[in-house]
């Protein structure tokens, strides 16, 4: 197995070697072998509303949790074959590096340092997040550039505040900052109308809005003034496993591009379209290439639905968060979500 641990950890190698002798076990094969041997996918998640959180019955629900289930459906034709491993912000990267989880779908922003210093391959971007603006509808603003002269609630010294300053300067419009140390105070100021604009990552704004006394009185502006591409991560040195994760996510996107949904997927069995037939495994080919059940993509859609369904169920209009798709719309409808061709 190639070295996948940061340089500093090599100092610990003698300990690891000693422990290996004590344990007397050979190194396990690649992740895919381990996953197949244990018949479950260990999926690292992070508690967040809409992302992944246990419901009243202790079932993990959310956008990230559904992608974990999609991987299990692709491999085992059973979305329940997931071991959800709750991680924390501090501990999530250790969990993936140490092999405690097979894949990390925990709201991680893809960055170059994370990829190279932590030894992680990022999969397809599942969520284009970024800093947005929440304003009262009464303000009658449709675009962020119309916010000239607005009062903006921020917390001092944060990246959020810097992004706001840059955005207003670049667009040559003015704003008045209302600064408070704590998010609770910021929120109180916004609810009381002491500022016109609340700014955070857009997904966080959707969560905040759903908790306001009258969520429908506020609107999330379409602009994103920072980049927070959220992607799943796997360890270096597991190419086959990485491809399965990647193509599982792309399969949900491709399904939406084809217009195939959870409820309608069975109706496509007789489809004359050769690309749909290949995708659903009616005509063989792709399953062999990825070394999975020929109907793996069908199984994914049948289990969790297409990308749009996953989004709307957890973040969007079918959820309490009512997060508009915005950049997370398909490319063919003006967003950024796209799948490479399945052929």
């Amino acid at each position: 197995m190639p070295d996948r641990k940061p340089v500093s950890l090599r100092l610990l190698a003698p300990f690891a070697a000693a422990l290996a002798l004590i344990a007397g076990t050979a190194q396990a094969g690649p992740t895919l072998d381990a996953v197949k041997a244990r018949s479950t996918v260990k999926c690292g998640v992070l508690n967040s509303p809409g992302g992944s959180a246990p419901d009243a019955n202790g079932e993990w629900r959310g956008f990230n949790a559904d992608f974990c289930r999609a991987i299990a459906a692709a491999l085992f034709n059973d979305p329940r074959k997931v071991e959800f491993v709750a991680t924390t912000r501090q501990q999530r990267f250790t969990a993936i590096q140490s092999g405690e989880v097979d894949v990390l779908i925990a709201g991680v922003t893809q960055t170059v340092t994370r990829a190279l210093q932590l030894g992680l391959h990022f999969g397809p971007i599942v969520l284009h997040d970024g800093q947005g603006f929440l304003v009262p509808k009464a303000l009658k603003v449709a675009k962020a550039t119309e916010l000239d002269g607005a009062t903006v609630c921020t917390m001092p010294g944060t990246t959020t505040e810097l992004n706001v300053t840059d955005f207003f300067r670049l667009n040559k419009i003015s704003y008045k900052p209302v600064v408070a140390e704590e998010f609770r105070e910021v929120l109180a100021a916004f609810t009381a109308g002491r500022c016109d604009v609340l700014t955070q990552d857009a997904s966080a704004l959707a969560i905040t809005r759903s908790q306001l006394p009258k969520p429908d009185d506020y609107v999330l502006l379409p602009e994103r003034i920072s980049k927070e591409p959220i992607a799943p991560a796997v360890r270096f040195g597991d190419d086959q496993w990485q491809e399965i994760v990647n193509w599982t996510i792309w399969a949900t996107i491709q399904a939406e591009e084809f217009g195939i949904a959870r409820d309608t997927v069975d109706g496509f069995a007789g489809s004359p379209d050769p690309s749909v037939r290949r995708f659903l495994g009616i005509d063989p080919g792709i399953g062999e290439a990825i070394r999975l059940d020929p109907r793996w993509a069908y199984n994914i859609v049948k289990a969790v639905g297409n990308y749009g369904e996953i989004f709307e169920r957890n973040y969007g209009k079918d959820s309490p968060l009512k997060f508009a798709r915005g950049p997370n719309e398909l490319v063919q409808r003006g967003g950024l979500i796209v799948s490479p061709p399945f052929r």
Binding site: L12, A23, A28, Q91, S98, E100
Partner: peptide
Amino acid sequence: LYVASLVFPLMLPGGISVDK
């Protein structure tokens, strides 16, 4: 707790994990 949950697993060889 951090040592037990962050450092210790990285010292173990791949494939072996002690229950969290």
